[in-house]
């Protein structure tokens, strides 16, 4: 087999992993800090994608519009997520997990129908900005430019998240709240506000994932389902609530899929899931330390 084919397959897998990482990191962060398994995280991802389409179309569909859409679309997801959080979720944090799963599941169904009302059943599509169209050559490997762009964005998001959790006051409090909410409250900190900010970050990452995936795929109803299943698997193999675990999990997931395609294309679908099973058999609590 051609080495450049393996190389390009690896890079494509890594770039796919970046979107998975961004979405899973948001899910994992909310899971870690708020202890909420947020099923409607996928809906926010879908809303991010649909919003990117609408904003880009509204701005004329040219390159500038597309760039602005990528910046603005996650904000729409954040706005919707925050309405749900402040109005409903904030009152339910102390409930048991089953209750929270049912609640977020219900919100997912509602958001699904709202998306259908707002955008209708037809699928939508946007192009990448002109600068990112076509393919580029990297060390003799041809790769779609947009995938190269994703390879840059992923690490940027990772660094940004690291700075947020390690270097900002609110990030530090959020980490503390993940370990012991009561202790944080005793110190006179408004925990509800911290939790809201943490949730906001989660929503932003879901929306960003959706906006970033929009140019690569058709934007349809149901895209929330496929992502949420993968994201939960990634969070589980990475270690619940651990953002770096989400990164490792996403890389494992994306790369096994793309390289599996070279080995056994008929059954490539099963490779990522097979990997999940193997990881969980060997390390039931995930690859990295779970905060749970």
């Amino acid at each position: 087999m051609d080495l450049s084919v393996v190389g390009s397959q690896l890079l494509v897998g890594l770039s796919r992993a970046m979107i998975l990482f961004i979405v899973s990191a948001g899910l994992s962060f909310v899971l870690g800090v708020l202890r909420v398994p947020n099923i409607f995280h996928g809906s926010l991802y879908m809303i991010g994608a649909f919003s990117a389409f609408s904003i880009a179309t509204w701005l004329g569909g040219q390159s500038t519009g597309l760039w602005l859409a990528m910046l603005a679309a996650p904000v729409v997801a954040v706005a919707i997520g925050m309405i749900v959080e402040r109005a409903l979720l904030a009152h339910l944090y102390r409930r048991e997990h089953l209750m929270l799963i049912l609640f977020t599941w219900g919100v997912m169904l509602i958001l699904n129908d709202l998306v259908k009302l707002a955008w209708g059943p037809t699928y939508r599509s946007i192009m990448p900005p002109a600068a990112l169209q076509g393919s580029a050559s990297l060390l003799g490997i041809a790769l779609p430019r947009y995938n190269l762009f994703l390879l840059l964005i992923g690490p940027l998001v990772a660094v940004g998240l690291w700075l947020f959790t390690q270097r900002t006051r609110i990030g530090k409090i959020a980490r503390a709240a993940a370990v012991d909410q009561e202790m944080v409250a005793i110190l006179g900190i408004n925990v509800s506000r911290v939790l809201a900010v943490a949730f906001l970050v989660g929503c932003y990452l879901a929306g960003l994932g959706g906006a970033l995936v929009a140019p690569t795929t058709s934007i349809t109803l149901g895209m929330d389902h496929s992502i949420i299943v993968d994201a939960f698997l990634i969070v589980t193999i990475g270690g619940l609530g651990n953002i770096w675990g989400a990164l490792v999990g996403a890389l494992v997931f994306g790369v096994t899929q793309s390289l599996g395609l070279l080995v056994w294309p008929q059954f490539a679908v099963v490779f990522p899931y097979l990997t999940v099973v193997i990881v969980l058999l060997l390390r039931p609590r995930g690859l990295l330390r779970s905060v749970w």
Partner: peptide
């Protein structure tokens, strides 16, 4: 031959493998 699950969101890795 290559088979993917229906609705697979990102087919780029599938296609780059075929092109190879």
């Amino acid at each position: 031959q290559t088979w993917w699950r229906p609705g697979e969101p990102d087919l780029v890795p599938y296609l780059t493998a075929i092109m190879g």
